[in-house]
């Protein structure tokens, strides 16, 4: 199991990387952390002609807060996110999510940009981007493009990026002070890809959701920001309300079948997650048992 031969170029700047991507287009692959790309190459599932290694573009690595915006460079590693005080303070959901990504040795190499550009529908960070209302910043031959997260993920391993573009950063609005969050995923083993996961953020007033964003993952070909969340906002949550929201959620899901679960199971688990999320965020244990049918 050895990768096919390829040419290798260590990008010296973003501009330099873009030049190569422009020349090679789909025949090139950007190497960031390599934690998804290299297994695929070792298995010869992909065989790029050119690897553009952006690993030394240190300007793409790091977390910064400016005003109400948290900017995370594409090369920021999962381990960096876990350790980042800025992330802990301003995007605590993200920190919880990162702890679920694979294993320590993977988190030391994998990057946020790589994860988003790879767009595995079962991975955690794309859903977080939806929940947190992120803007994805790409640079291409025509300059910089800002893409809303809900327009970025377009299918299994498919994004709005063109082969000539490089994801350089994400911007997240700083999480409001009074907001709260929930992250959970069902995975067969610690660090496995989720069967279904939920990254949620909410603000709560007088025992009701004033705002609720539910980013589900592994429930379709891309992460889903559930519109059914609106059914839970500004209402007193009763089991009946929850059932209605779950039913609306069910309509939004289009889960895939794989080794671990049938679509029916994914639908069921998404509803379990919804109930647990609502129950936990509202501190209402009465709502948490079972899946609202």
């Amino acid at each position: 199991m050895k990768a096919s031969a390829f040419a290798y170029a260590r990008a010296t700047s973003v501009a330099n990387a873009l030049e190569m991507l422009t020349t090679y287009g789909e025949r090139a692959k950007v190497l960031s952390g390599g934690q998804s790309l290299l297994p695929a190459m070792n298995l010869r599932l992909v065989a790029p002609e050119l690897i553009v290694d952006i690993g030394e573009l240190t300007e793409l690595r790091g977390v910064a807060v400016k005003g109400e915006v948290l900017t995370i460079g594409a090369l920021t590693r999962h381990a960096d996110l876990l350790k980042s005080r800025e992330v802990a303070a301003h995007a605590p959901l993200l920190k919880d999510a990162v702890a679920h990504i694979a294993h320590p040795a993977i988190r030391n190499r994998g990057t946020i940009g790589g994860s988003l550009a790879h767009a595995d529908p079962a991975s955690e960070l794309p859903a977080c981007m939806l929940t947190l209302g992120a803007t994805i910043i790409a640079r291409g031959p025509g300059g910089e493009r800002r893409i809303a997260a809900n327009e970025f993920f377009v299918g299994i391993y498919e994004t709005a990026l063109t082969p000539q573009e490089l994801l350089v950063a994400v911007e997240l609005p700083v999480t409001p002070k009074n907001s709260t969050h929930f992250f959970h995923e069902f995975a067969r083993r610690h660090g496995d890809y989720a069967i279904v996961g939920l990254a949620a953020q909410a603000s709560i007033r007088d025992g009701r959701f004033a705002d609720l964003r539910l980013g589900f993952f592994a429930v379709g070909d891309r992460p889903l920001l559930a519109e059914s969340a609106s059914k839970l906002v500004d209402v007193a949550i009763t089991p009946a309300v929850l059932i209605e929201a779950a039913s609306a959620l069910d309509d939004e899901l289009d889960p895939l079948e794989d080794q671990q679960a049938t679509p029916a199971m994914r639908r069921h688990l998404a509803k379990v997650l919804l109930a647990r999320c609502v129950s936990l965020l509202l501190a209402r244990p009465d709502l948490g048992a079972g899946a609202p049918a």
């Binding site: 067969r188 671990q260 049938t262 029916a264 199971m265």
Partner: peptide, 13 residues
């Protein structure tokens, strides 16, 4: 005894 098998047996799915 996967979750799929157990949920099926419980008729949850």
């Amino acid at each position: 005894l996967t979750p799929q098998v157990i949920l099926t047996a419980l008729r949850r799915i």
